[in-house]
């Protein structure tokens, strides 16, 4: 699966994107967020308060309960501020 980070999530994780096999035991966005938070360092900081984070799976906005598969593109970002 492809995971992307935008805005302050990109800064805190020091990562724009990565290829990641769906971690063992992870089946939803919430599970993936918990897995990433447990990586430590910048990831723990970025995922400390998940209420600050919005998620897209395959470029559509989803809730954290959304299921994940290994072929998904998952993106984490703050609430949008365009216009």
């Amino acid at each position: 699966m492809k995971v992307l980070y935008f805005a302050w999530l990109k800064e805190k994780t020091s990562l724009a994107e990565e290829d990641l096999p769906l971690p063992c035991g992870v089946s939803t966005v919430a599970g993936l967020m918990e897995y990433l938070k447990n990586r430590g360092g910048g990831f723990s900081d970025a995922f400390a308060d998940i209420t600050m984070i919005r998620v897209a799976v395959n470029m559509e906005h989803v809730q954290v309960s959304h299921p994940l598969s290994d072929s998904d593109e998952v993106a984490f970002f703050p609430p949008v501020t365009g216009g």
């Binding site: 703050p78 949008v80 501020t81 365009g82």
Partner: peptide, 26 residues
């Protein structure tokens, strides 16, 4: 269109000002 763009389109603004840089809050 503007009201939906403001909440659905994935853009993020970062302001640089006299007190440093910060991401704009929604």
């Amino acid at each position: 269109i503007m009201d939906f763009l403001k909440t659905e389109a994935p853009f993020w603004k970062k302001e640089l000002g006299n007190k440093g840089a910060k991401w704009v809050a929604a």
